[in-house]
């Protein structure tokens, strides 16, 4: 086992898969000289050259549309969109092209491609600090992955590149410098299957469900609640939002009888809203209390660091939500 950063884990997955499979190409804005908006692709241009690490114009719809065509033509493109905010410009190509071609022509033609993009905030302003995973997760034909740890970032990206369907792979800007153990070569390449959640902390009183940065917040909240309240929290990392591993979440709730859903996106129409609806359907009789949600209030994130802090969902919000249950 080696300890590396989340950023390094993402880069390693692309690098290893590019070495293994000559069909894999990277494309995106400023991904060569600049190394990508979060320096994830730094150095790959030197290793693989401009044909496989392709600098593109600033044109998100063009990038994703190009990737769809390249995937149809036999390549495996990994397209980087600087942040998920800019993915809005490519939404039609993602939803109407990438997600549909397999279905509309009866499964003849799959679109094996990955759109890598980044969620997050930190005084970036209202147009650059949004979370849209719920939108993508609502689209049949897409797979949506949001890893929280370096091991999952690497393992799930390997799986995403090898997947025959289009995968939206959402990283988190505040996780890039976090570090964690990633399996070394002795343990295989560490691929993590898409569609499997993971119980990362066992507990008996309440289930906290999170993904990406909110998974770390949930783990922190669990420690606080154990120390200060004697509450035992089970923490589930969804890892994949679509297709969602409901059995793992349901089994956990059958043990704890309480559920808190933790997300960073807006409360109205956010990913947690559909998850909540599904969970009350699947485990109403197992629940001893209403399902709680931690989510962003329905306000754009302000540019002021102080005001921003008031809005961002945190471990304190999770602690508060759990205390409401007891």
């Amino acid at each position: 086992m080696a300890e590396i950063s989340y950023r390094q884990a993402v880069r390693d997955a692309m690098r290893e898969e590019m070495m293994r499979d000559p069909r894999v190409i990277l494309m995106g804005e400023s991904i060569t000289g600049y190394g990508g908006s979060y320096a994830v692709t730094k150095g790959l241009i030197d290793e693989f050259g401009p044909k496989r690490v392709m600098e593109t114009p600033i044109a998100e719809a063009g990038i994703v549309g190009f990737a769809v065509g390249a995937a149809m033509g036999g390549l495996i493109p990994v397209a980087e969109l600087m942040t998920v905010n800019f993915a809005l410009l490519a939404l039609d190509q993602v939803v109407n092209s990438a997600a549909k071609f397999h279905y509309m022509f009866g499964g003849q033609w799959s679109v094996p491609m990955v759109v890598r993009t980044v969620s997050g905030f930190g005084q970036l302003g209202p147009t650059h600090s949004q979370s849209f995973e719920g939108w993508f997760a609502s689209v049949p034909g897409l797979k949506v992955v949001m890893p929280a740890t370096p091991a999952d970032a690497k393992g799930l990206l390997l799986a995403a590149i090898r997947d025959p369907d289009p995968v939206i792979f959402i990283e988190h800007s505040l996780l890039y410098s976090t570090r964690g153990e990633v399996p070394g070569p002795a343990l295989g390449d560490g691929e993590v299957p898409i569609g499997q959640a993971k119980v990362v902390r066992e507990g008996s009183d309440v289930t906290l469900v999170g993904y990406s940065r909110m998974l770390l917040q949930a783990l922190h909240a669990a420690e606080v609640l154990e120390r200060e309240d004697g509450i035992s929290c089970e923490v589930v990392d969804l890892r994949t939002l679509r297709p969602l591993d409901y059995p793992t979440v349901v089994n956990s709730v059958r043990r704890t009888h309480r559920l808190v859903l933790c997300g960073e996106d807006w409360r109205t129409g956010g990913f947690g809203a559909s998850l909540l609806s599904e969970m009350q359907d699947r485990c109403f009789d197992d629940l001893d209390a209403p399902i709680q949600r931690v989510a962003m209030r329905d306000i754009p994130l302000p540019y002021s660091r102080e005001l921003e802090r008031l809005l961002i969902p945190s471990s304190e919000d999770i602690v508060t939500a759990v205390r409401r249950l007891s």
Partner: peptide, 23 residues
């Protein structure tokens, strides 16, 4: 390719496919 009904969306597909051919 399968037909595209949202107008103009097939243009970038052709470019991507053609790029693969060139590569």
């Amino acid at each position: 390719a399968p037909i595209c009904i949202p107008v103009a969306t097939n243009y970038p597909h052709a470019v991507g496919a053609a790029w693969g051919a060139r590569l």
